[in-house]
């Protein structure tokens, strides 16, 4: 899941980026409110974390500008303002969730997962496909009820495919979701991850569509 973080405070922004990366997200961090206005154009983000206390620019103005230009990505508002009026204003301006500083990293991750799940129209926290079930919160995959050891990127790739059932994802799309700006993508990285996933979870799990990309196999 690729997340855009808009946060001016260096310690909070750095912590969010490092922490969410460790929790299985790919994160890009913008510190400047003016750059943030064009932020969602930069990559196909799944969600954004927006700090309202940006100096110079009001975070709500940034949000309103995103919504005006048609960006529908879920936005988790992160702010020090905790008055009920502020919360109402935040949610009414197009925010999807609201978290007051100081916050727990785990809660930020959980709320992001909930936002993404809701956007996919799914209520259950577990992603299921055939014999496989993935728990995004616990970062755990079960095959026929037995835990399977997956590397972090493999798990994220599987999560991406499970969240896009029935859709074909191109290699470029997968790379954009898996890697933030800080990480260089190796040319055959996606093929390697797919290969490992097939080896660990069965070759029928992921189908290759020549010239198009990858999609989930039939549920069996």
């Amino acid at each position: 899941m690729r997340i855009l973080i808009i946060e001016d405070d260096p310690l909070i922004g750095d912590g969010l980026q490092a922490g969410l990366t460790a929790l299985g997200f790919s994160c890009d961090w913008l510190r400047d409110g003016k750059l943030a206005l064009r932020g969602p154009d930069a990559a196909p983000y799944d969600a954004a974390i927006l700090d309202l206390g940006l100096p110079g620019v009001d975070g709500l103005d940034v949000l309103a500008s995103w919504r005006r230009s048609g960006h529908a990505l879920p936005v988790l508002i992160l702010t020090a303002r905790d008055a009920v009026d502020d919360r109402i204003r935040g949610l009414d301006s197009g925010g999807d969730d609201y978290l007051v500083k100081p916050f727990a990293l785990g809660e930020v991750a959980a709320r992001l997962r909930a936002l993404l799940r809701r956007r996919g129209g799914q209520a259950s926290p577990l992603l299921q496909h055939g014999r496989i079930s993935l728990d995004p919160a616990a970062r755990r995959v079960l095959l026929d009820g037995q835990p399977v050891e997956l590397a972090a990127r493999e798990l994220t790739l599987l999560e991406l495919l499970l969240n896009n059932k029935g859709r074909v994802l191109s290699r470029a799309q997968i790379e954009e979701k898996l890697y933030d700006w800080a990480h260089e993508v190796e040319s055959n990285a996606v093929e390697v991850h797919i290969h490992h996933l097939r080896k660990k979870l069965g070759s029928e799990l992921i189908k290759t569509r020549r010239g198009l990309g990858y999609t989930l196999g039939d549920e069996a």
Partner: peptide
Amino acid sequence: LRSPLAGLRVQ
């Protein structure tokens, strides 16, 4: 007031 605490907590 909250930002230093938030930074502290997240780090």
